[in-house]
Write a protein that binds this DNA or RNA. Sequence first.
DNA 1: TTAAGGATTAGGTTCAGGCC
DNA 2: GGCCTGAACCTAATCCTTAA
Length: 415
Amino acid sequence: MKRDLKAKLSDLQRTGEVRTGRQYAENLKTGLEYNLFPGEGREEETAFGFCYMRELLFPLTYQHGWSRLSGIDSCCGKSLVLSARDDSLAGFNPRESLFLDIETTGLSGGTGTWAFLIGLGWLEGNSFKLRQYFLRKPAEERALLSHFSREAERFPVMVTFNGKIFDLPLIQTRQILAGLRHTVPPRHLDLLQCARSLWKKRLPSRSLKALEEALLGIKRFDDIPGTEIPSVYFEYLRRGNTENMRKVFHHNVLDILSMVTLLERVSLLGNGEMVEHPAEELALGRLCINVGRIKEGLSYLRRASAKGTPPLAEEAAIELALFYKRRHQWEKAASIWQMAVDNKTTNPMFYVELAKYFEHRQRDYSTALSITEEAIALLKNCPPVSLESGKLNVPSLEHRSERLRRRLASATRFS
DNA sequence: TTAAGGATTAGGTTCAGGCC
DNA sequence: GGCCTGAACCTAATCCTTAA
């Protein structure tokens, strides 16, 4: 049995599936593991040993998609406070921000997933400096993480894409397991959250790739899919295959550069610049009202309702009317519902809200009843619509019309 | 697989009208 | 005026979607 196993191992070593310590040392000597990128990569020393690092410099005039990297210099805190709904970003300075993207051995997090490539980028003079720290072998993890901590300590703000959920918790786990202090910049801007608030209604997906294609003018060619990245790294560990590994480095570079131009776009939109779509005005309206910038928010909602096509314009009109309703500005809310009903909207919500207004505010049961009956006829020809609370359906409207008939009869009796 | 954020649902509270 | 009922509103809990 033992002999069989030894024979199998010899076969694997012969075919390159498994390398002996001597083969590994030979690869190191020939530079296979030592330097993936001759001229760019080098070894960096820390208190915990050596770690491979590759450094790239991009001039700020560098064109990434439709934008130059220099656009990031115009980002301001006020617009990011709105998009990220985070007051701590008020003093945001792009020159004090560290961009982070990591590549890992899986998605599951926890103790079994390593961050084998940590990409960091920041503005320096007239350039964008990008450093990639790479885990050539698991034994170098403490050196890799200590490099990350050293860079992270220099910046007050970190910018990521989904870093709140993925990158930072994973790094924290690795730092704890490595017996290192958890170090990250005190403030964090997660661009995924901004993208969700701003483009939820405009784009079907808010993945970085979808945002690149729709908003940044970037189409990736020969990019390695994220799902293949773990297997490429394991292949590198097993056989020293560097060709695909370089593609992973390139993927990481593109992710970081896209974060830079996406940040510029988020900031511009937060400032009310480059508003291209009524869905963006609807999003900005909601965000402004949430942070108490009421006048600005209402103005965005009015524009979205005036310019958008039916489903979106109606959503903006409903948002606007419900704002007035919550503030008991009944006449303003009613004029919006009435206008939609006059224009023969097919959204029953306008009819129901208008019927409520006539029943409870005007005590005009007759008008409320006729509007409710219009809504019932409309609902019988279209599926149920979600109301502010509860479901809008035919039985609930018939219940309403019955009540209105009773009230109408009672009012007639006593008049 | 994980967690944030949004959407939906359920339950509790408030308010107003009707009735005695 | 007090009680009952129903509608609207508010809040907390739960479910669903989304990304790496």
